[in-house]
């Protein structure tokens, strides 16, 4: 049974006003435990609206969201419990920090879960370690941290709730390359240690190529493409038509194929190296 599945979800903003706009229309997909799924699409393609349905911040106007096979809106009063199982990290989550110390801020989520103080402390420590925040930072004010540290502190605030599905909206936006790599690797680590599913909304094809196992592509509010990362990047033309890029290495390989070389579709540099070496071993032209 999939952990999370979305069935025929439709959502329109400002229904019945002159500003009416359909943000998500008839989207269906599912996420299995332990999967890293990338959700890509243009600005305004409905990604952010879609993810806000996953933890019940928005209620589907048509369609359903199922968690462990049960409609999350089945019991309206228990919707808060859904938010602890599906942790949503918003874009620029550092703007939601508010407590006196980093430690207290990370504890906000677990405390709301109603956990005993010991358990909260243990979870804060574990989450801080998982995102690589040293202990001496925990006593500091969150406003004294650097940009990358703030971002990781905010992500730790969600991880401390130990969600079975972690959803992140553009987790690397506005970070320097070192900060990006840190954030991306801690997401993989979270999946590896907890077996949770991770869904990442992103613009960066390079990041998704490195990280995601499955990709969902949104275009104008509907799900245009979906499948394994290789399957989706193989349809480079369709992606380009939607105004999206493919990873640079995939673009190079597509050109080479067009030039007549018998090469497979790749989306990471490592795979590209392997493919080229294999091609050479078979006696191909090394140029």
């Amino acid at each position: 049974m999939p952990l999370l599945s979305v069935e025929n979800l439709t959502y329109t903003y400002g229904r019945g006003t002159p500003f009416e706009k359909t943000a998500v229309s008839d989207v269906s997909f599912s996420v299995e435990p332990g999967e890293i799924v990338g959700l890509i699409g243009h600005t305004g393609s409905g990604k952010s609206t879609l993810v806000q349905h996953l933890n019940g911040l928005l209620r589907p106007q048509r369609g359903r969201v199922l968690l462990d096979g049960k409609d999350i809106w089945q019991n309206e009063k228990r919707i808060r419990d859904v938010r602890f199982r599906v942790g949503l990290v918003f874009q620029y989550p550092e703007y939601q920090l508010f407590e006196d110390t980093v430690e207290q801020d990370i504890a906000f989520g677990p405390k709301n879960c109603g956990l005993p103080p010991d358990e909260v402390r243990a979870r804060v420590a574990a989450a801080a370690e998982a995102v690589g925040l040293p202990e001496k930072l925990l006593k500091k004010s969150p406003f004294d941290l650097s940009g990358g540290e703030k971002r990781r502190a905010a992500i730790a605030g969600i991880m401390a709730m130990q969600p079975a599905c972690l959803v992140l909206d553009e987790p690397t936006a506005g970070l320097d390359p070192a900060g990006r790599d840190q954030v991306l690797s801690l997401l993989t680590r979270y999946r590896d240690t907890t077996g949770a599913a991770v869904l990442i909304v992103s613009h960066s094809m390079e990041d998704m190529a490195k990280l995601a196992e499955k990709l969902l592509v949104m275009h104008n509010g509907s799900l245009a493409l979906s499948g394994t990362t290789a399957e989706v990047f193989a349809q480079a033309d369709a992606l380009v038509e939607m105004g999206l890029d493919v990873p640079q290495i995939t673009a190079v390989f597509l050109e080479l194929r067009r030039a007549g070389l018998p090469l497979p579709t790749v989306y990471t540099v490592d795979a590209a190296v392997d493919a080229l070496l294999a091609y050479r071993a078979k006696g191909g032209d090394p140029a």
Partner: peptide, 30 residues
């Protein structure tokens, strides 16, 4: 911000007036 704090389980609807005012802090400060 409201959504972000709700995603962390912030409870804004229940409790008496004082509790509700205190529950607004995670939104007002940011």
């Amino acid at each position: 911000i409201l959504n972000a704090q709700k995603a962390r389980g912030a409870d804004l609807e229940s409790g008496n007036l004082l509790r509700r005012i205190r529950a607004m802090m995670p939104i007002l400060i940011p």
